[in-house]
């Protein structure tokens, strides 16, 4: 990891080139160093350093007491995290793959998200649940789910999803510092795909704030996580035809950054929303609602959505047909631009 150490002029901070997963690792290292009440728990997170190596080296550095290999039980991991959290600790719980979060769904739905409400703030659950999600890495069945809406439809919980190494570290630290529980989704397809300069010190990215990855005038393309590279490929292609695209990386899925969406769509008058989860009840529908509520009269064309189909995420032989492709995104952009 310790490749190139240099100062970036804007931030005047010492940075290192990191992949997304290295940035997550560095974020956890930072909070373990700075806050004695934080601890990591999950399956294979300790000695093995996580099946993706997200927690690599952390048990060596912080000990078995703070980086804990748990029994194989998602409900147990989240349930005990609730107990730890109400009693002074800040658990960072790893769910090995998002497709294996379902045994813990009961705990998250009925306790993690509601404890503050049902005790009028007497108890709260400041914890982070990390989960790699998404298809495209030829993983076995169930490993490729993108189930964010099961959790955005859960008042009391926040949901974030970084697309870049820089955001990954900043959002992780923000999630740990947040007084409420945060589900932190990791685009596993992007874990090692690119590197960027990441400050070595602690910093946070505000939860609830999206980011304009690229400014443009003709159409707003909204996405997050593993769909950002897909969108960027489509945009590169389409801009050759003289279409100017604005790309928004939402970064937080709940609460949505309504302002960034509204401002952009009011400028461009056109929008395409891209996500890899199924279309029906997908988060894209909420984004369309935000546009409807804030910017309806600015629209020059109906909004397009490019999503996974309404089918279970397939076995990997067909996963490239399930996932939105740059081609499908491009077609949607053309459709709204030429409406």
């Amino acid at each position: 990891m310790a490749t190139q150490v240099k100062k970036t002029p804007q931030q005047n901070a010492v940075t290192e080139k990191m992949t997304l997963i290295q940035a997550i690792n560095d974020g956890m290292k930072t909070v373990l160093e700075n806050d004695q009440m934080t601890l990591i728990l999950g399956e294979d997170v300790g000695k093995n350093g996580g099946v993706f190596r997200a927690t690599d080296g952390l048990q060596e550095q912080f000990g078995e007491d703070r980086v804990v290999d748990t029994p194989l039980s998602e409900s147990g991991i989240i349930g005990t995290s609730v107990g730890l959290a109400v009693n002074g600790f800040k658990p960072i719980a790893e769910i090995q793959f998002m497709g294996f979060i379902y045994p813990a769904y009961d705990q998250i739905m009925t306790h993690v998200s509601r404890l503050r409400m049902k005790t009028m703030g007497h108890f709260s659950v400041p914890m982070v649940i990390r989960a790699p999600y998404g298809a495209g890495v030829r993983a076995p069945e169930v490993h490729s789910d993108s189930a964010e809406v099961l959790f955005t439809h859960m008042p009391g919980l926040k949901v974030v999803c970084p697309a870049t190494p820089h955001d990954a570290k900043g959002l992780l630290i923000a999630a740990v510092e947040d007084p409420d529980p945060v589900l932190y989704l990791e685009p596993m397809r992007s874990y090692r795909s690119t590197k960027e300069e990441v400050p070595v010190d602690s910093y946070s990215i505000e939860i609830g704030k999206g980011n304009i990855r690229k400014e443009g005038n003709d159409v707003t393309v909204i996405a997050w996580g593993a769909m950002i590279p897909t969108v960027e490929k489509a945009v590169q292609q389409i801009e050759r035809n003289g279409v100017s695209c604005e790309v928004i990386d939402l970064r937080t899925l709940y609460p949505l950054d309504r302002n960034i969406i509204a401002e952009s769509v009011q400028k461009t008058g056109r929008a395409v929303v891209v996500h890899e989860a199924h279309a029906t009840s997908g988060l894209g529908n909420d984004i369309v609602s935000v546009i409807n509520d804030t910017s309806f009269l600015y629209l020059k064309a109906p909004i397009e959505r490019v999503t996974g189909f309404d089918v279970p995420v397939p076995f990997f032989a067909l996963e490239e047909h399930y996932l939105p492709t740059p081609k499908r995104v491009q077609i949607a952009i053309e459709k709204v631009v030429h409406f």
Binding site: E43, D44, G46, K47, N48, V51, D69, P71, L72
Partner: peptide
């Protein structure tokens, strides 16, 4: 073993 977790840490 369950991946990396030995029997005596599992139970």
């Amino acid at each position: 073993y369950a991946i990396s977790v030995p029997f005596d840490k599992q139970m």
